[in-house]
């Protein structure tokens, strides 16, 4: 189980995470939501040890993350950054093969088991027979699925995603998040993903963590957390939340929209 206690992380002198404590359930999809700059992405980077902590601890199965060697950590936690950069001339198959870095010996390459996993990953993300295609020639949706394939090929049980549907249109947003949900439900992965859109979080997340001013404000099952009261408290914004065809829908109130426009 992954958890953070009294976590303080600062950029310069101003703390972004300010005593945040949170515990992530194993399995399923957890959405991190909150206003811009509240520390969602910072939390993911701190979990990976990419940012120095001023205080607090992050533990994985009760072992402090700092005590876990980087290659061991890579076999437990995979990460999909917000912006992904792919060099020209790299093909999908090579990208996926690179994900197994932590499993390879210094002079060795992927085993037969690894190759079976890579084929399985391509099937899962719907990019079969595209291993020889240059990543930069894929469409936006395909490219995002290629990055998810790379994360899956790392074969970690916890996957951190920073706005995985950024820059995608509605069709690809739903396709990618449907894939993310399947990874949580069918493949038993623990997915922790930053999402800006509360409707997407409502549709695809099993749990929601609302972060406010660097602290995990409210955590719990999606339907209990996404309420008009919590949205007002965390986002300082009025929205209606209602059920439609068994799904939660968040809709900004008209007066709130006008107020936001005026600001």
């Amino acid at each position: 189980m992954l958890s953070a206690q009294n976590l303080v992380v600062s950029y310069g002198k101003s703390p972004v995470l300010n005593g945040l404590s949170v515990q992530f359930d194993t399995g399923g999809v957890t959405a991190l939501v909150g206003p811009n700059g509240c520390g969602k992405s910072t939390l993911l980077k701190a979990i990976l040890g990419l940012l120095p902590k001023s205080a607090g601890t992050i533990t994985l199965d009760d072992v402090p993350i700092d005590d876990i060697p980087r290659q061991t950590l890579a076999r437990r936690i995979a990460y999909l950054p917000q912006e992904n950069h792919c060099p020209d001339y790299i093909v999908l198959g090579e990208l996926i093969e690179l994900a197994g870095y932590a499993r390879y010996s210094l002079f060795g390459g992927p085993s037969a088991q690894d190759r079976a996993l890579f084929a399985d990953v391509l099937r899962t993300v719907g990019l079969v027979n595209m291993a020889h295609v240059p990543v930069n020639s894929l469409s936006g949706g395909q490219r995002q699925r290629a990055w998810i394939a790379m994360v899956l090929a790392q074969d970690a049980d916890i996957i951190l995603m920073d706005e995985p549907v950024n820059h995608l249109d509605m069709k690809y947003q739903y396709a990618v998040l449907e894939l993310v949900r399947r990874l949580g439900q069918e493949h038993g992965k623990t997915i922790i993903t930053v999402l800006h859109d509360l409707n997407l979080a409502s549709a695809f997340a099993d749990h929601v963590v609302m972060i406010r001013q660097g602290k995990a404000g409210i955590c719990g099952p999606t339907k209990q957390v996404i309420t008009p009261e919590n949205i007002r408290m965390v986002f300082d914004f009025d929205a209606d939340v209602f059920m439609r065809e068994d799904r939660l829908v968040c809709l900004p109130r008209q007066d709130a929209q006008m107020r936001a426009n005026a600001e």
Binding site: R70, P81, Q154
Partner: peptide, 9 residues
């Protein structure tokens, strides 16, 4: 691929 991607791998 980027330092964050490399470190997480």
């Amino acid at each position: 691929l980027g330092p964050e991607k490399a470190a997480s791998a």
